[in-house]
């Protein structure tokens, strides 16, 4: 190939280690905020075994990644518009069989990402909970990784374990953090500081170059989040003025400025 490659999307994997910290909430609302800023955004539900982006967005499509993987539908037919002005590729509930990583799934996932890359400015890979090989493989396909963490001991531990695995297993040296459900302004900085300190002490000495954690932003605990989830609405779309939505907009601003 000698022709210059078309400008392609920034691929960012959203992961957390621990479940229930708002990974899918962050993926969907960040996508909406980026879309509001004029970017073409795709969210791919990479939680192949236990997808729930469809529930968050209240979308129950006939065509999902499952139909694409089995060759019954084209990829373009599976890319759907979501409420927040971005596009989604949903996994669908028929994907339970894909909780086991195989070379076939790997190649198909890789092919799908390769194909959507030129069509968008940002591709967000919403991974599953835990540190499974499906999650690790999905993260390995992304140029950037965003770890969602809440200021709780369990979430902190799992985020740290995730960072450690990515650093030692994939040679990842740059990890972004989004601290969700903060209780006071500046808590995000404390969390980053705390994680960086332990990484410096226990992970970095064994590496040829050090891992750096970057705080992408913090999202305050906001009762509106629960309300939006209950109503099956996208927070950023339904309640753009609440603190959590404003935080999402500023994070998107930072991402588009970079």
């Amino acid at each position: 190939m000698t022709a210059p490659l078309p400008p392609s999307a920034k691929i960012i994997a959203v992961t957390s280690g621990k479940g229930g910290v708002g990974k899918t909430f962050v993926s969907a609302n960040l996508a909406a905020a980026l879309a509001r800023a004029g970017r073409r955004v795709l969210v791919l539900d990479a939680d192949l075994g236990l997808a729930n982006l469809d529930v968050v967005l209240n979308l129950y499509p006939k065509v999902t990644l499952h139909e694409v993987f089995t060759g019954r539908q084209s990829l373009r037919d599976a890319i759907l518009p979501a409420p927040g002005g971005f596009s989604v590729l949903l996994a669908g509930s028929g994907m339970v069989e894909y909780s086991r990583m195989t070379p076939e799934i790997r190649d198909q996932l890789q092919a799908v990402i390769h194909e959507v890359e030129p069509m968008f400015d940002h591709v967000i890979l919403d991974t599953g909970a835990g540190i499974s090989d499906v999650v690790l493989y999905t993260v390995s396909l992304a140029g950037e990784v965003l770890v969602v963490v809440t200021p709780e001991p369990t979430s902190l531990t799992d985020a740290y374990a995730t960072i450690k695995v990515l650093a030692t297993g994939q040679g990842r040296r740059q990890v972004s953090l989004l601290v969700n459900q903060t209780r006071r302004p500046g808590e995000g900085r404390s969390v980053r500081q705390q994680l960086q300190q332990v990484v410096d002490r226990y992970v970095n000495p064994g590496l040829t170059s050090p891992v750096r954690l970057e705080l992408l932003g913090e999202v305050p605990a906001d009762p509106a989040v629960r309300e939006a989830v209950q109503r099956r609405e996208l927070l950023f779309d339904a309640m753009p003025g609440v603190p959590a939505s404003i935080a999402m907009a500023s994070i998107a601003g930072r991402m588009t400025a970079a």
Partner: peptide
């Protein structure tokens, strides 16, 4: 990939937080 988090690491992780 190292995924084990030792007690020492946890202690430091929660130390001043």
């Amino acid at each position: 990939a190292v995924s084990v988090v030792s007690n020492e690491e946890k202690r430091l992780l929660f130390e001043t937080f």
